[in-house]
Design a protein around this nucleic acid. Structure first.
Lengths: 149, 149
DNA sequence: AACGACAGGTTGCAATTGCAACTATATCGG
DNA sequence: CCGATATAGTTGCAATTGCAACCTGTCGTT
């Protein structure tokens, strides 16, 4: 194969991996330091919050937060155990469930956001100008499915 | 806190998370489809390859591939079990070990690269021009420690 | 030397993730 | 209507990751 990537592609790729891992690690640490659950919990709760009264099907959650169905299923087990969400049998599809966020879920979301937001600022935003943030967002959106979130 | 992130920062942040997760997933799948071990194995073997005859201390590996010491320790257990690396007691520091890549390790590295490289091209490089790759690399390097890899 | 603080590694344990197999329901072609 | 196929979700199992406790050896101070 002359299918070897360009040197520039390798550098950009490496930095994508590193930047993600480093920033995410910092954010997760901030959450843990504040005795809050991991980021994924926030992601799911946020989607359910946005969905409002209609709730979401589990596969919709999976699509939104890029989690395979098994993992959605088990993450919801944990969230349900903490009374942050409720699963309800689904009218229109006998196989499926519909998931709703509870009051406690909303409350946790509200408690997490200040910490999460501050962590984003501290470990990400502060290193860029607004132009650079736009540039970065535009560049990354070139990858398939990235802009859909 | 009025420390809430700018909307643009949130978008860029979200896309960083999504682009990483999507691309990495695709690459890992390509490796698995070729019956090859996960990316981390490649990372570690590559560092050891670069280090040459002197090998590396475990903590150096950890720094290079962003893995905590426990995880380095156990990843090396697996690699050693497959005879891809060797651990050797360390002369200059009685606590530590020095790690070397074996012939089998070099061989696996050589088998993985074509698949890995093709996957980088297919799920990443092809969506950018060379200018964009440079831009992306430059932007990401603004984050602390990202440029060091 | 002797002390305590610290650094390099290992191990036990819990949480998370990925994969494959499974159940139950929908849907589509005939 | 019926069977083949696909979809929604769950569960069991193995690999990986993160955290905390631990052991050993180093180093700086006294």
């Amino acid at each position: 194969m002359n299918e070897e990537p360009d040197r520039r592609a390798i550098i950009a790729w490496t930095r994508l991996l590193r930047s993600h891992q480093l920033s995410l690690e910092r954010v997760e640490k901030a959450l843990k330091a504040a005795d809050l659950p991991p980021l994924r919990w926030y992601d799911v709760l946020l989607e359910l919050h946005r969905a409002g009264r209609d709730g979401l099907r589990q596969f919709e959650i999976g699509n939104a937060v890029l989690l395979s169905k098994h993992n959605v299923s088990r993450l919801l087990d944990r969230l349900e155990r903490e009374a942050l969400v409720v699963r309800q049998a689904c009218d229109e599809d006998g196989r499926g469930a519909r998931v709703f966020i509870t009051e406690a879920g909303h409350h946790l979301l509200a408690r997490m956001w200040p910490v999460y937001g501050a962590a984003i600022r501290a470990s990400f935003e502060r290193y860029f100008s607004v132009q650079e943030l736009d540039q970065l967002a535009t560049l990354l959106a070139r990858l398939p499915d990235v802009g859909d979130g």
